[in-house]
Design a protein around this nucleic acid. Structure first.
Lengths: 221, 221
DNA sequence: GCAATAGTGTCTATTAGACAATATGGG
DNA sequence: CCCATATTGTCTAATAGACACTATTGC
């Protein structure tokens, strides 16, 4: 076994799963590990590549998510691949990092059989010290997500199937960590082909009703 | 051996090495493979991770480059990681793609002992059909490089230690595939801290001499 | 009418693109 | 002086940010 360790590195996928909580704050899923290495340690969810069932590392990431959440097909995006002999106590390892977006109305993550506990944490200040190089990974995943939104991408995958423009703006603000101007935000949406109007309306509470939108199918991000 | 293939994927690094030719056109290094798999097939240079000598996949990529070129430390940047059971005939494989930038005045690549031939090719229209998924990889590497330049990054690593603003503009144009406005290009450089003036001057040929610049050390890209 | 939010309009400072004008060397 | 390029300046259209204004519902 130690011989194969030297010849073949460990290959796995780690996932920073983001969602919005009830107050529209950005949250990331952390798990407390039950098994070796680092039992009781907190980390991003991840799992070893299984060549017999996975057709790609994307599949590995999806398997990891399937064991933690109820959502069928979360949006997945590759961030970066870390590698080295010392970043995992089991030996030379290669880890591909993904971020995933979970719609805010989905069933939240559930504790699986391989985890002691789970927690939706503030990605800027996770309450636990993360093992391996996962603190660095989380920061990189958040930076990549923010970068996409800054460049004009709409985080539609964080929202329910139908949503108002204000909800979309709140999602962007949660990701970026600061408020956005309503006028400028709506103006830019005029040029976007990623979402479209839905004939129905929104009638909740006291305020004026708002137009509902939905994501145009088969679009990136 | 076939058992270990199933348990551990092949891990390797592939590199799209870009440089500028004498006419300041963007070129990418292609190799004709001598060994299995795909002997005589053209591909991007790449090599298997060697856990005994590599401290990261970056090191693997640097080893690959060292065997093809004379340059000591080319600029290296990770692009994406491809994976799957069928993309390499040897079995389940994980390939991390890098792009590298070679200064235009450096000694060009030399044919190594594991390659039949090398060629500096037009990255938009390589003259050979590339094996594996390397055509897709090359397109992705070029897109990533262009993206960085569009976002304002300066490809200083494609240039000799000292260069004129016009040479830098030619490098950007070669990457982007279209011409840039001289005035706008120079205006943006005023806000850049990535390069600085060199007291010396440039005296070649008939035209007016041009100010030489150099990259500020320890800067990304 | 009032509260609260949806949706629109306006003004301005900044910027990218196009392009003109000037500067400076060799021959 | 002429040529070729370096370097700078100018004009304009497009854009982002700030902010004010109007619209529409429930109560």
């Amino acid at each position: 076994m130690s011989e194969s360790k030297r010849l073949y590195p460990i290959v796995n996928a780690d996932v920073a799963l983001f969602t919005l909580d009830a107050e529209s704050r950005l949250r990331v899923l952390l798990i407390q590990r039950a098994n070796n290495p680092a039992p009781k340690g907190w980390a991003l969810p991840g799992g070893l590549l299984n060549p017999e069932v996975d057709n790609s590392l994307d599949d590995t990431a999806l398997r990891v998510l399937a064991s933690k959440t109820q959502v069928a097909l979360p949006h997945l995006e590759q961030v970066v691949t870390h590698s080295g002999p010392d970043r995992d106590p089991r030996g030379w390892s290669v880890s591909t990092l993904y971020y995933a977006l979970l719609p805010s109305n989905q069933v939240p993550a559930v504790a699986g059989n391989k985890t002691e506990a789970i927690e939706w944490a503030d990605p800027e200040k996770p309450g636990h010290r993360l093992g391996f190089d996962h603190a660095q990974m989380l920061a990189k995943a958040l930076a990549t997500l923010r970068d996409k939104v800054v460049r004009g991408a709409l985080p539609l995958h964080l929202l329910p199937p139908q949503f108002t423009i204000t909800e979309l703006q709140r999602a962007c603000e949660a990701i970026l960590g600061h408020e956005l101007d309503k006028g400028a935000f709506r103006r830019q949406l005029k040029n976007s082909v990623a979402m479209e109007e839905v004939p129905g309306e929104f009638v909740r509470g006291p305020p004026r009703p708002a137009q509902l939108f939905r994501a145009v199918p088969n679009l990136p991000f």
